[in-house]
Every structure is written in C-alpha cells, then in structure tokens.
Design a protein around this nucleic acid. Structure first.
Lengths: 190, 190
DNA sequence: CGAAATATGTAGATCGGTCTATTAGGAGAC
DNA sequence: GTCTCCTAATAGACCGATCTACATATTTCG
C-alpha cells in the first residue's frame, strides 16, 4: 500500500502548493487542502504528523526546488546570463498571467506572513531564497566574476525579480516584470 | 463626542496597521486589533461598518500615504536622486531591524494574499503602489528624464526596493537591502 | 432630549488538531 | 497457491478555540 499512500501524500502537497501560493499560510484552511487533495482528515495527520506547519514546509520546499531546477536547467540551455534572466522572467510572467494572478512567487507570501512569528517556516523560506541566489551566483561565477561580485549581483537580481512579481500581482499586470527585465540587463552589463 | 470617537477610530487603524504589516490580512484577527486598540467590538463596527475589509483598506491607505509623504519630503530635502533612493532604503532597513523584522513593506503581504481573490483590497494595493511609483517618477522627470523613461525606471527601482524588503524579512538580515542600494545607484547612472 | 459612541453578548461558521474505527494490501507460514 | 496476520492508510466524527459579524443595551456629551 506504499504506492497509494505516497500518491495521497503527493496530492496533499500539490494542493497545498497551489492554495498557499495563491492565498498564503493563514489564508488557507486545512479543509480547503483536504478538499482539493481529495483526502480525508485522517490521511493528512497520518502523512504529516506535524500538522499544518509540516505540510506547508514541505509544500514550500517542493516549490522551491522546482524553481531551483528551472534556474539550473535554463542556465545550461541558454547561451548567456542575460538570456537566462530574461527567460526566467518571461516564464514567471507567463505563469502568473496564465493563473490570472493567483501565482507569483510560491515563497514570498508565506515569507512575509511568518517572518517574525514562525521560526521553522521562516527558516524554510530563508533557505529557499538562499538556494536560488546560489544558483544565480554559480552562473555569474562561471561568467568570470569573483565570488563576492557574484553574490552581490545575484542578490540584487533576485530582489529585482521578487519585487517585480509583487508589483505585477498587486497591479494585475505583467508590465512591472517586463520593465524589470530591461533593468536586469543593465545590472548585468554594469 | 466627536473627538473621543475619532481617537478610538485612529487607535483601531493604528493597531491594524502594525498587526497587518507583521502578519498580513488573514493572519490578523479582529480580536487582536480590538485588544491592541483598546476598543470593544461594538466600536469597531460603529466606525467601520464595512467590517474587516474596510478597516484593512483604511489601514493600508494610511500606511501608503505615510510612505508617499516620506518619499516626497525626502525628495525635497536631498540634493540628488541617488541620495533619495539611498535614504529611502536606509530608512526602511532601520525600521525593519528596529522592529525585529515584524515590519517591511506595509502593503506587500496583503497585496500577495488578496491579489486574486479580493477585488477591493487588491485595488487599494495597486493604487498605493501606483502612487509611490509616481512619486519616484516625478523626481526622475525633474532630473530631466522623459516621462516614459521616468516611469520605467521608477517601476524598476520600486521593484528592487520591494524585492529587497521581501528577501531581508525572509532572511532576517539587512544585507539584501544594502546590496539593492548599490544596484539602485547603478540603475540611476545608466 | 437625541445622536454618537461604547460596551457586551451571542450567533453561526470554521479553524487546527485529536480520536476511534474501519479498510486495504503486502509479507510470511505452510 | 492461499490463508492469516499486521501495519499502513483511509474515513469521518468530534473537540475546544477562534473567527467575523450582528444585536441589544448602556453610557456619554452637545
């Protein structure tokens, strides 16, 4: 029965990922997750004895790893770093528009909600952002930049991307992302 | 009793501003607001017949106007736009650290939580961001930039600032803000 | 007095979490 | 093969707490 159990677990994580990205940690009730994941309450606490926090942490981790993989696979598939950043922003903008602004950064909402009050989730968010920054910095080092330069620039590029996602969702328009795209190129060429 | 009533109203808005900035729309219960604002439940629905949404909207608007005023007053007090941006980021970083990362952008958390599901609050967030962007763009036009250039750059600077605030809160460190500060100067000089 | 404001009480829903049963399916004995 | 057993997994009732909102006084002051 290991297989069926794993499927239920995965369905719950998937449901939590979508809902939490759209409405945040406090904005999603377990009943919603259970309904979307088509699972009874007992299954949730069987697979996630740590309750809502554990489920949310695993959902954030999964979404974080997906973005990490996206960055690293694009980095391999693309001729230069400028194209990498542009591809990331294009992909995120398309994803956001396709979801009618229910999707943006899968981490940011929770990160802001729990920054000062939930240590375990805050740590998950911090680590996830750290991983993304590292993925960008790796590429910048491959371009010939020093470690310090790469870390600085990767952090600013990540901030520009995250901020553009916030503005785009808030205004329900991809314009901020397109503008950030041009500014990112300026930062890369500086 | 107009005076006393207005004071109660103001206390509730102040309490909502602080709590909502720290934990977001869904993360704050009216009981918390009432306790922090030292008011009974009846007063809340007397002053805010629209309930939680109205209270939140007014809290966001007040916080938004405060930042707007900060930008515009700094713009008058400072010799160049570079110093303006640096002053804004320094002020925001100090404020965040001083609150142990319970403060960041007073709008962002709610903006992300309600982007796709609460039209009235989404509109408040969008308008607030629009106002900030306009305040920055006004200064850039005064520097001699065209209207379009100013709008583009103001949007990217705002994204950079917002993103830095997200990363700084998520990682509980002012480093992302300091790095964004240097990148903002690059964008201004480009 | 009359309106504004305050002060509670309470309704009805939903919250996260725990509990006890029941079902399902694979491992091992023979 | 197939029967038995044991645990993983499902199922849903139930708990106290909390949520937003409303209703009904009571108080305060022009």
């Amino acid at each position: 029965m290991a297989v069926k159990g794993d499927e239920t677990r995965a369905r719950l994580i998937d449901a939590a990922r979508t809902l939490v990205e759209a409405r945040g940690y406090f904005g999603v009730g377990l009943n919603q997750v259970l309904e979307a994941g088509k699972a009874p309450r007992g299954s949730l606490y069987h697979h996630f004895p740590g309750g809502k926090d554990q489920l949310t942490a695993e959902a954030l981790t999964a979404s974080g790893q997906e973005i990490d993989a996206l960055i690293r696979s694009l980095a391999d598939a693309v001729p230069d770093t400028r194209t990498l950043i542009e591809s990331i922003l294009d992909a995120l903008a398309d994803r956001m528009e396709g979801a009618e602004y229910a999707k943006g950064c899968p981490i940011a909402t929770v990160a802001l909600e729990v920054a000062a009050t939930n240590d375990s989730l805050q740590k998950v968010c911090a680590d996830t952002y750290g991983g993304w920054q590292q993925a960008l910095a790796d590429r910048l080092v491959a371009d010939g930049r020093t470690h310090d330069q790469a870390e600085d620039l990767a952090c600013s590029l990540l901030a520009l991307i995250e901020g553009a996602l916030v503005l785009a969702r808030a205004q329900r328009s991809r314009t901020p992302i397109d503008r950030a795209r041009r500014s990112a190129v300026i930062l890369l060429n500086a």
